[in-house]
């Protein structure tokens, strides 16, 4: 049997599959339905320094092959996370990635410092790509200079590996990716949701309370695969690919395009068993094709010359 083990930004993962932040709560919510310990890692919902109430409802709208959301980073703040959610995660036997966001560079540094003190956290994911936070969020992720600054300052405050989550809602994702790498990022995850909108024509109203939101699901997968491929060509740090992964084949597309790991997001809503099915499907693929390690497939895209 082939090996699914990967090492992403210093995280030893028994398989390349993690969860996409914001779709999995703190993991506890799904623990009745799946064995969390089968995952390669878990990435929990974004925490901020202070509690955030989030955006006004409606926050969801299903669209063809996808969904729009405008949650707005609702969370109880980092202290509540450490007190209420971390104990559950500590008991799990897999690497824990905590997503963080702030409205200022100082917020990111303080969060990194506080969370670095927690031995049960294995890595931080810098969410500089949320399209739904009024301040900060995507602003950091769509400007090379700002992205570099937030990454380097957070890196200084952190003792954990830093994975930077990138937004597709920018002119040149490769340039942002390079800037993050130069600033000290240990890994990249991409993509966050695609900025979108829907209108209810009978009432002339937007479907979402905050008018615009982020599109996820299979609808965005080709965009995500293309961006992983582009970014993988220009950076030397590992990439966690995500965007509409429902099946093992979807996950393998990302890996072949250049991702070392993959994250499952919207698929958890459709079928909480999706991550397990993806892991099993990857194993079958390795076996079928006689591949000894999933790492041999990372960036293995064949392009006829």
């Amino acid at each position: 049997m082939g090996s699914l083990e990967v090492d992403i930004a210093g995280l030893k993962m028994k398989n390349p599959v993690t969860t996409a932040s914001g779709t999995y709560g703190s993991g506890k919510e799904y623990s009745d339905l799946i064995d969390i310990n089968r995952l390669g890692a878990i990435c929990v919902k974004t925490v901020t320094l202070k509690p955030m109430s989030g955006n006004p409802p409606p926050r969801l709208w299903e669209t063809p092959s996808g969904m729009l959301n405008s949650i707005g980073l609702q969370n109880d703040g980092v202290e509540a996370f450490i007190d209420n959610d971390l104990p559950f995660l500590s008991k799990q036997d897999i690497p824990v990635i905590v997503s963080i966001a702030g409205t200022s560079i100082d917020d990111f540094s303080r969060l990194a410092k506080m969370l670095s003190a927690q031995s049960d956290i294995d890595a931080l994911e810098l969410n500089i790509s949320c399209p739904n936070a009024k301040v900060g969020g995507m602003i950091f992720g769509s400007d090379e200079k700002l992205a570099a600054e937030v990454v380097s300052k957070t890196k200084m405050a952190s003792t954990k590996p830093l994975i930077v989550k990138l937004t597709p809602n920018t002119g040149d994702i490769s340039a942002i990716a390079r800037a993050c790498e130069r600033a000290g990022a240990d890994g990249l995850s991409l993509i966050n949701t695609v900025y979108g909108m829907s209108v209810e024509v009978d009432t002339l109203k937007p479907r979402l309370g905050s008018i615009v939101g982020g599109l996820s699901g299979p609808a965005i997968k080709p965009i995500a695969v293309r961006m992983v491929w582009e970014v993988a060509k220009v950076v030397n740090i590992p990439i966690i690919g995500m965007g509409g992964i429902l099946t093992a084949e979807d996950a393998l597309e990302f890996i072949i395009a250049g991702a070392s790991g993959v994250a499952v997001g919207t698929a958890n809503f459709i079928d909480p068993q999706a991550p397990i099915k993806i892991i099993d499907g990857m194993n079958k693929f390795l076996e079928k094709h006689g591949v000894s390690s999933i790492q041999d497939l990372v960036g293995a895209l064949k392009i006829d010359s």
């Binding site: 779709t23 709560g25 919510e29 799904y30 299903e62 959301n69 949650i71």
Partner: peptide
């Protein structure tokens, strides 16, 4: 409410 996860994870149905 319209829901995605149904289990309290996504905060979409608030």
């Amino acid at each position: 409410a319209r829901m995605a996860c149904g289990v309290g994870a996504c905060l979409g149905c608030t």
